[in-house]
Design a binder for these strands. Structure first.
Lengths: 101, 101
DNA sequence: TCGATAGTTCGATATTTTTCGAACTTTGGC
DNA sequence: GCCAAAGTTCGAAAAATATCGAACTATCGA
């Protein structure tokens, strides 16, 4: 299983982040990861076939928004909060519902 | 000349804003409007033909990012700073170079 | 090792965007 | 009214994305 490339924090490009977040499904995924923490792809798929879900997670990963690790038979996706905050301070706050504040 | 619709502040959709800003040319336009203030389309066109420039300004307008008014023979485009800030506080700060502060 | 589960990759098709020329509209100046 | 300048709109062609099934990979448990 070849893993898709993960940009370093400094390499995250604003255009790519915006493109990734311009899709309603992906925006919702990011919001849920922000609120609920690390999740498997399956936990966030709607009715979509898995190839479509996988595609959207890949876009998020390549944009630098999420990181994926193996956990048993599934893969857990986590928002790269600190990396994003460091690179584009305040961006996440615009995206996620105000989280306990 | 039928004017493209301009969403009210409350109608501005985050997906649309992100889509509008995911294009390098449009992102640059927004940055320049932020720094230099109101500009004609011509002042910001690169080498592009005017139909292409017009298209990009329309995307920005329909996303709710800019407002356009007639000024003599040209049209001046202004960033909808307050509307955007009201709807998505902090978003513009992620996009524009830190402006004296 | 076999089967099941969770994702990924590939390939083809569909949809959306972008690009650009040509024709058109609006405004200003003569 | 006529011409030029600045944009807009239309239409067609090119490019980028999204969708989805099928085949493939990796991990767990029996």
């Amino acid at each position: 299983m070849r893993h898709a490339r993960l940009p370093a924090s400094e390499e995250i490009a604003l255009e790519d982040v915006f493109h990734a977040l311009s899709d309603p499904f992906r925006l919702e995924v990011v919001r849920r990861l922000a609120v609920e923490g690390e999740q498997s792809c399956q936990a966030l798929e709607g009715d979509r076939p898995k190839s479509s879900v996988s595609h959207h997670f890949r876009v998020l990963r390549e944009a630098g928004l999420i990181r994926t690790r193996n956990k048993g038979v599934s893969r857990m996706n986590a928002l790269r909060r600190d990396d994003i905050e460091q690179r584009f301070p305040g961006l996440l706050a615009c995206v996620v519902p105000k989280s306990g504040g």
